[in-house]
Write a protein that binds this DNA or RNA. Structure first.
Lengths: 227, 227
DNA sequence: CGGGCGCTTGATTTGAATCAAACTGGGTGG
DNA sequence: CCACCCAGTTTGATTCAAATCAAGCGCCCG
């Protein structure tokens, strides 16, 4: 069952006009991938420290750094399909599962390189996913670079909406807490909470429950996020 | 003369224990690379729009986005050795030479891929440079995520110092204006200027001239940038 | 039932944006 | 050659928004 989910994800990620090559590559990845599971707030550092490469299958993983003053700065949020360990030359970031049941397909050191050697589609996959990480970070810089909290949180919600599978219709269940959002945007938790309230009052979003966000006015919400 | 600089840069970027393979790869790159030059504020968009890939040889290139409100957000600063066009699937960013005499080695579409096919070192180079871009963006997020302007500007100067060739001894000539720094950090120009003054008064830096920065106290300066 | 965590709201303070203006140096044209 | 201009930089005064400090609420879990 679980492996089924894995191979379907791999098939979706492998972009090629040739479905036969794609399925063969997906199968090759599945065979060598070791699925691991992490619970809420559990570290994934060991995996990367061992030189392994991982692909998030379910749940989410946060990549962050702790400062001397105790503040936590989240630099990236890895969701299903995102890879971890591709850019880790220096081990300055910590990785942690965001929610229970976070599942990761783990590859031994060198294994991904070997797969890339054997399958052109997989080599392209790696390039795709790193380019995607760059786009994600750039988009986040655009959001974080805004001046007001309204713009930051608004832009963030729109981005999350685009990344979540269930977000297509403008309704999404946030996988992360207010604290995570605050640490990702570099603002205070209270500000995040207040801003969400303001956005609700202005009719730009609706909040059936704290984690359940409905995007009412994506245009005004994304204003300033225009890239 | 100029081509000499190019091949030396390529040799430096190509990391391999085998100097023969390295030099052969560098030569292969030089042969197909078309050197182009851009003047201050001149666009480099056309290059990337044509599907070409570029490698900055001299000067610097800023990657930015213009918002609806007219604000400019710089997301990255490309310096010698950095590539442009590697992550451009969607054309949402503009590229511009920062200074006169900015030189770029330009490769035709598909050419880099062909080189990577022929030389393993070049394939690794591409992976290296994209991973480097990720680290750069993550490091910048860490700086921009700080709360106070002192921490942001301080961290920024330390980062720039590390990236500039002349910065090793703690003295550097900023390639960019206060406006650029402001738009890169998402703060106001006046704040950047004021902060530089404050840092000088506190003895953390010295400013022989507006662009000439001497790092006096890198530890305190980088405080909070600790990753 | 208690405790803790996540979320929200309120009051106060601080720091950065904004508005305004002066200064510098390099470059241009009279 | 000098006057002027302009972009970049700096400083000052004011305003406004977010950090901080403080506290209450709802909820899940032990």
């Amino acid at each position: 069952m679980r492996d089924e989910g894995m191979i379907q994800l791999f098939r979706r990620l492998l972009r090629t006009p040739d479905p036969v090559a794609r399925d063969a590559a997906a199968e090759a990845m599945r065979v060598v991938a070791r699925p691991v599971e992490r619970q809420r707030n559990q570290s994934c550092d060991a995996l990367v420290a061992a030189g392994r490469i991982g692909c998030v299958l379910a749940g989410a993983v946060r990549k962050y750094s702790l400062r001397s003053d105790g503040h936590r700065q989240i630099v990236d949020l890895l969701m299903p399909g995102d890879f971890l360990g591709l850019s880790h030359r220096d081990p300055c970031f910590a990785l942690e599962a965001v929610s229970n049941g976070t599942r990761i397909a783990s590859f031994r050191p060198g294994q991904v390189e070997a797969l890339a050697q054997a399958h052109t589609v997989i080599a392209n996959l790696i390039l795709d996913r790193t380019a995607d990480a760059i786009r994600r970070l750039e988009a986040h810089l655009l959001v974080q670079g805004r001046t007001t909290a309204i713009e930051k949180v608004g832009g963030y919600l729109v981005t999350m909406c685009g990344r979540m599978a269930d977000g297509r219709n403008g309704s999404l269940l946030l996988p992360i807490s207010r604290y995570d959002i605050a640490d990702h945007l570099g603002i205070a938790v209270e500000t995040v909470s207040r801003t969400m309230t303001t956005l609700t009052q202005r009719g730009m979003i609706a909040l059936p429950s704290p984690r359940h966000v409905e995007i009412r006015d994506p245009v005004r919400l994304a204003e300033g996020t225009s890239y």
